[in-house]
Design a binder for these strands. Structure first.
Lengths: 195, 195
DNA sequence: CTTCATGGCATAGAAAATCTAAGTCAACAC
DNA sequence: GTGTTGACTTAGATTTTCTATGCCATGAAG
């Protein structure tokens, strides 16, 4: 038997916003802009014909409908997430595993430190290493190093890390080809190259 | 706590294909082309790194992973669908409620008859009526009539219904503006104007 | 054997959805 | 008063989804 599902991407924006009671914090979690979250939630409300949030200048409150919807949607997403991890155990890690070479790690670059402290998105687990083998073995998702060298078959972005004072620091972000375009890696790239 | 969700639209394509063991029949249900379903499922398999189907020239079989994934995903979608109906009761109808004027109804137009017998998509519930009031009152989603007249505020598409023999039959498909762009209405339009 | 029907696959491009950047507004803090 | 924060809106950029088309492999019918 078929069902009618609401727009699922919008539902994701709703769920994250409802947990945080903030489009801003939801946008951080989802690695998109607050405007995108706002639009998605608005679009969901329009398609449902139901207000899910009360908006305030500095945040959100759930309506009664939103209050009743949230746990049901969160549980369904949790079930999907768990089922997915069960079927594809390789997706179990909830963090982007980022190798950072010792040289860069010791530079205490602000964005990298922010990631380390959990203050920046995407969520990452930082590992001090420059071992490309870990990338190939699937033990890392991304490797950030100063050396521009990388073996064929991997994908590399040459970037300039802005420094608080002085010239930008050249670095290379290496990934498996399949991961190069994923949202978290792109978000990481953007974070690292941000002024 | 956040989760990592697979691409939800692809998941929808997987779930429908797995129920039907056919991209073709899933495409009918989802009102998209088989090629689109195929691409979505393939994309999901790539992002999970797991084969979900075995393909055969005349259909699909589920892999062990696909077998274990399906009930979990179906249940989650069911939960979302139920939650959505609970929060937005107006969405309860699972059928597109189509009013067909008596004149058109009596013509026994093939596409309309196909809809009536449940042989054509989108799923519709046909009601013989030409009462625009029902549309405005929300008791109908769409009204198909021969008359080109409709009140301001509604949306109308003037269409030509192909007949098996003879010239196309002019008709008007009237909807509330909010519904005019929705997938089911568009699918209905396409079905009715198909040669 | 040939022909026809069926359905999955791949591709290029069209269409739609999603997102971003930028600016506005309303509150709150100092 | 100014500055900060976060929600809202808009236009356009970007990405995703979809379509149309043709190809391929099978199975059924003649």
């Amino acid at each position: 038997m078929s069902y009618r599902l609401p727009p699922l991407n919008s539902l994701r924006a709703f769920e994250a916003s409802a947990r945080h009671l903030s489009f801003k914090r939801a946008s951080d979690e989802l690695c998109v802009t607050p405007g995108a979250v706002s639009q998605q939630v608005k679009s969901l409300e329009a398609s449902l014909g139901v207000q899910l949030f009360r908006r305030f200048p500095r945040g959100l409150l759930l309506t009664a409908e939103g209050e009743s919807y949230l746990p049901l949607i969160s549980n369904a997403f949790r079930a999907i997430s768990d089922a997915t991890e069960h079927v594809a155990p390789a997706l179990k890690g909830r963090f982007l595993r980022v190798g950072v070479s010792r040289a860069l790690s010791e530079r205490r670059h602000p964005a990298i430190e922010g990631l380390r402290r959990g203050e920046e998105r995407p969520r990452t687990k930082l590992i001090t290493t420059d071992d490309l083998g870990k990338l190939i073995d699937g033990k890392l998702d991304v490797l950030l190093r100063t050396s521009p060298q990388f073996p064929p078959g991997l994908h590399a972005d040459r970037i300039a890390l802005p420094t608080p004072s002085g010239p930008a620091l050249p670095a290379t972000l290496v990934t498996l080809p399949g991961l190069a375009g994923c949202r978290e890696v792109r978000a990481l790239l953007k974070l690292l190259t941000r002024a």
